[in-house]
Design a protein around this nucleic acid. Structure first.
Length: 214
DNA sequence: AACTCGGGGCA
DNA sequence: TGCCCAGAGTT
């Protein structure tokens, strides 16, 4: 896919998603970190429902550490993988308190050293909390990039590298959300809504015609 | 690169 | 029920 076509795709996704932002609810870098850890393999709606009550009780590493793992589980038990996530979050809080003065680190190395934080979560925090030009490739972006032909490469890292290379830095932060929202509401995993897609004519998805008739 | 982990939600 | 969800960690 040539650059002109990719640019056209981004322009249309931008127009279709004015004022793009994360759908996770948070007020501080710490709340964002916790929300993103919880959102792994879970829907953001179920995460928001849990964090609304959790953050009212504990919105700092100190408070969440004091809350303790058993009581933390009570707040997040409606979220998938909550046992592992509760253990990781308590350990995260301990590390933040011991090594980072209770602050969320603003660099990849320290973020990825936290349990339950991988490349994708680190990129979201760097992008959304600290305004750094990173692209967090999740299942949505991976699917959209490969299916449309925007950036083929079946591993998340390949797609991240390709997209990061050609998207202008000043657009990288918003482009992340344009892609996510497109993947979530239009280019869905199971029954993509090709009939309503704003980049239909530019998309290289082999089966788009079949779904456009739905 | 492939596999495992391990629950909720939704068609 | 089966498949997917704003993945991470291990082999």
């Amino acid at each position: 896919m040539n650059r002109q076509k990719r640019t056209a795709i981004f322009h249309r996704l931008k127009t279709a998603n004015p004022a793009p932002r994360t759908e996770l609810c948070f007020r501080t870098p710490f709340e964002l970190l916790i929300a993103v850890i919880l959102s792994a393999q879970a829907t953001d709606r179920s995460v928001n429902k849990a964090t609304e009550r959790l953050f009212a009780v504990a919105d700092t590493p100190g408070a969440m550490w004091a809350l303790g793992e058993p009581r933390l589980k009570e707040y997040i038990q409606t979220i998938g993988l909550f046992n592992t996530k509760a253990r990781n979050i308590i350990e995260c809080c301990r590390i933040l308190l011991e090594r980072h003065q209770g602050l969320v680190p603003n660099n990849r190395h320290d973020l990825e050293a936290l349990p339950g934080v991988g490349r994708k979560t680190a990129n979201v925090v760097l992008n959304t909390a600290f305004g750094q030009p990173t692209l967090a490739v999740d299942t949505h972006i991976l699917r959209v990039a490969n299916r449309t032909g925007l950036a083929r490469g079946h591993t998340p890292r390949q797609v991240e590298d390709k997209l990061t290379r050609w998207i202008p830095k000043e657009y990288l932060q918003d482009a992340h959300h344009w892609l996510i929202l497109h993947g979530r509401y239009v280019c869905t995993a199971r029954k993509p809504r090709c009939a309503a897609c704003v980049i239909y004519d530019l998309c290289e998805f082999e089966d788009k015609a079949a779904y456009a008739r739905n």
